[in-house]
C-alpha cells in the first residue's frame, strides 16, 4: 500500500534528513579543508565525544538534573499561576501585565544577580531554568481555562456545582492539551536556562564544559557539548510528546487516529 509506504517514509524522515545534513557537513569540511579550530567536521566531533566520553557524561548529568529541578519548579509555579490567572479576573488583570513584562526581560540578565545572591554553581542554574520555563506554562494553562465554553460551565452550574467542581471536572481536564503543549516548549527552554547560567557562573555542567573547551581551543569538544544538549532536549521533548498523546488522545484524534 502506498499509504503504508508513505507513513514509513514519514517516520524515517528525521533520520534521513539528519544523515544527509551530516554527510553534507562532512563533505564541506573535507573538501574545503576547514580547520577543526574553526568549524570541526562531524567526524572529529564524534571522536571528541568518544575521547571525552567520561567528563562529558559527568557534565551532562549535572546539566540534566539541574534542568529537571528548575523545570519541576517551573511546572509547579506555572500551573499554580496559570490556574490563578485563568480562573480569577482580578488576578488576570493584576498579574498578567507584570508577567508579560517579566517575560520580556532576557533571563541572562538575571544570572549575575543570582550569582550575587547564591554564589556560582547549581543554584543559579536551577533558578535560571525555572525563570525561563514557567511563563509558557502560565500562559497556556490560563488560556485553556479562560477559553472554556460557557455552555459547558452552564451545564455544571445548573447542577449547583461549586467553583472547585467546575475547575476539577471541566476546567483542568480541558486545559490538559494546552498544558502538555506548553511542557514541550518549556522543557527545551529550561535546558537553555541551565546552559546559559552554567556558561557564566558554574564549574560544572555542559555549559561550563563548552566554555572551558572553547577557551582552550578544543572546538570539537565545544560542538560535542552542543550535540549532547540537543540530544537531551530532544529526548525530553519526545517524552512529553508521548505523554501528551497518552493523556490527551481525545484532543488529537485527527492526527493520531486510533493510535
Amino acid at each position: 500500500m502506498t499509504t503504508d509506504r508513505q507513513r514509513r517514509l514519514e517516520q524515517a524522515a528525521p533520520w534521513i534528513l539528519s544523515v544527509a545534513l551530516l554527510v553534507v557537513w562532512q563533505a564541506i569540511c573535507t573538501l574545503f579543508e576547514v580547520s577543526d579550530f574553526i568549524f570541526p567536521s562531524p567526524w572529529t566531533i564524534a571522536q571528541a565525544l568518544v575521547e571525552y566520553a567520561k567528563p562529558i557524561a559527568g557534565h551532562a548529568w549535572q546539566t540534566f538534573w539541574t534542568t529537571m529541578i528548575g523545570f519541576a519548579i517551573g511546572v509547579a509555579v506555572g500551573l499554580a499561576l496559570g490556574v490563578a490567572v485563568g480562573t480569577s479576573r482580578f488576578v488576570y488583570r493584576g498579574l498578567y501585565p507584570l508577567l508579560v513584562a517579566f517575560n520580556a526581560i532576557p533571563k541572562v540578565a538575571f544570572v549575575p544577580i543570582l550569582v550575587v545572591w547564591f554564589g556560582i554553581g547549581t543554584v543559579p542554574a536551577v533558578l535560571t531554568a525555572f525563570l525561563i520555563s514557567f511563563f509558557p506554562i502560565v500562559v497556556n494553562v490560563a488560556t485553556g481555562l479562560a477559553t472554556l465554553e460557557p455552555e459547558l460551565e452552564d451545564v455544571l452550574r445548573s447542577l449547583g456545582a461549586r467553583k472547585s467542581d467546575i475547575l476539577l471536572k471541566v476546567g483542568l481536564p480541558r486545559s490538559l492539551p494546552f498544558f502538555f503543549a506548553s511542557l514541550k516548549v518549556s522543557i527545551t527552554l529550561a535546558f537553555i536556562g541551565t546552559v546559559v547560567s552554567e556558561t557564566v557562573a558554574s564549574n560544572d555542567g555542559i555549559g561550563y564544559l563548552m566554555m572551558s573547551a572553547g577557551s582552550s581551543m578544543k572546538m570539537p569538544l565545544v560542538f560535542a557539548g552542543l550535540f549532547v544538549i540537543g540530544v537531551m532536549a530532544m529526548a525530553m521533548y519526545e517524552l512529553f510528546a508521548v505523554l501528551e498523546r497518552r493523556m490527551t488522545g481525545w484532543a488529537h484524534r485527527g492526527a493520531h487516529a486510533s493510535g
Binding site: E149, E151, D154, R174, L176, W250, A251
Partner: peptide
C-alpha cells in the same frame, strides 16, 4: 435566588465533555 439543583438542562450543542 441561585442555580437550582432539581433541574436538568440540554442545549443545542450536546456539550459533552470530550475526554
Amino acid at each position: 435566588t441561585g442555580p437550582l439543583k432539581i433541574v436538568g438542562m440540554a442545549f443545542q450543542a450536546p456539550t459533552l465533555l470530550p475526554w
